[in-house]
Design a protein around this nucleic acid. Structure first.
Length: 273
DNA sequence: ACGGATGTTCGCGC
DNA sequence: CGCGCGAACATCCG
């Protein structure tokens, strides 16, 4: 989402949206197509901000803001004039030079809607930004102590920490050597410290990966993750088989050896990768 | 053919 | 209120 934010900023900031096409009501939300299109038409983009996995676009005081989310399969794509639109284009923003910024979203789980009060409250209720300096080990440890949930589900709770999804939760827990089913409150201060660093590390690695290639997940390429999507493959650290379990309806991947089900006895932090 | 998939939301039950 | 579960969204891929 951070890369999506940077991309939209590059493509849209200071530019005026000439016309809008969004036939898919799911993308727009409850508002009518006509209202949506007329509200956006002629808007000059003044800001593109990210909060967790949400983007908020600003078009000045007199215009409504827009809330964007990519769901699982959404991506923003820049399409120069006269080039064909992606197959799953759900939203088309036409600029004055004929280029379009589109939302390409196979599963239609993405959103691009006028930000109303209800959604503003939703954005306001998001938890801390894990890459901010305020996300410290003591902050995380305090949060962890108040939760009886599995640590994996805790990490993915957007109201606690904003922006960690299924992949990053798995990667961070592997880096920290914490079993995904451990209770949040069972983590020691040392483990909270290591997990804080691991969350930041996993997110930064992902941002770097997106910056260096334009890869969307790992389509057509090798799986770049340490454990995510690697059930049955050898653990990158100990060579034992990566396991797969379902938690909260989502798949978790972990190494039972490197991520033991009980807290480590002594405080020898594991070697970092 | 079947099962699974980067996410969020909603309704229901405890 | 908190939490867990299943469903829904829609379509492609292995």
């Amino acid at each position: 989402m951070e890369i999506a934010r940077e991309s939209l900023e590059t493509w849209l900031l200071g530019r005026t949206i000439d016309t809008v096409r969004a036939p898919d009501s799911r993308i727009r939300g409850a508002v009518s197509r006509q209202k949506f299109e007329t509200e956006l038409r002629g808007s000059r983009t003044q800001s593109v901000e990210r909060r967790g996995k949400f983007l908020v676009l600003g078009f000045g005081e007199s215009r409504p803001r827009v809330l964007a989310h990519l769901g699982m399969t959404g991506k923003f794509v820049y399409v120069p004039a006269d080039e064909p639109l992606p197959r799953f284009t759900r939203l088309e923003l036409r600029l004055s030079d004929g280029a379009r910024v589109v939302l390409d979203d196979r599963r239609r789980l993405g959103q691009f809607r006028l930000l109303d009060e209800r959604e503003q409250r939703r954005v306001d209720s998001l938890g801390i930004e894990p890459l901010s300096s305020a996300f410290t080990h003591s902050y995380l440890h305090t949060l962890l102590r108040s939760s009886h949930r599995a640590i994996k589900l805790f990490l993915m709770d957007q109201k606690k920490i904003a922006g960690i999804g299924n992949i990053q939760a798995a990667e961070a827990l592997f880096l920290a050597g914490v079993h995904p089913s451990r209770t949040a409150r069972s983590l020691s201060g040392d483990e909270a410290r290591l997990l804080t660093r691991s969350v930041k590390k996993a997110l930064r690695a992902e941002i770097r990966r997106y910056r260096s290639r334009r890869a969307y997940l790992y389509e057509g390429a090798l799986n770049p993750f340490l454990v995510y999507g690697r059930a049955g493959e050898p653990c990158p650290r100990c060579d034992r088989r990566i396991r797969r379990v379902v938690q909260g309806g989502r798949t978790s991947y972990y190494c039972a050896t490197c991520q033991p089900g009980q807290p480590r006895k002594s405080g020898q932090p594991r070697k970092k990768r």
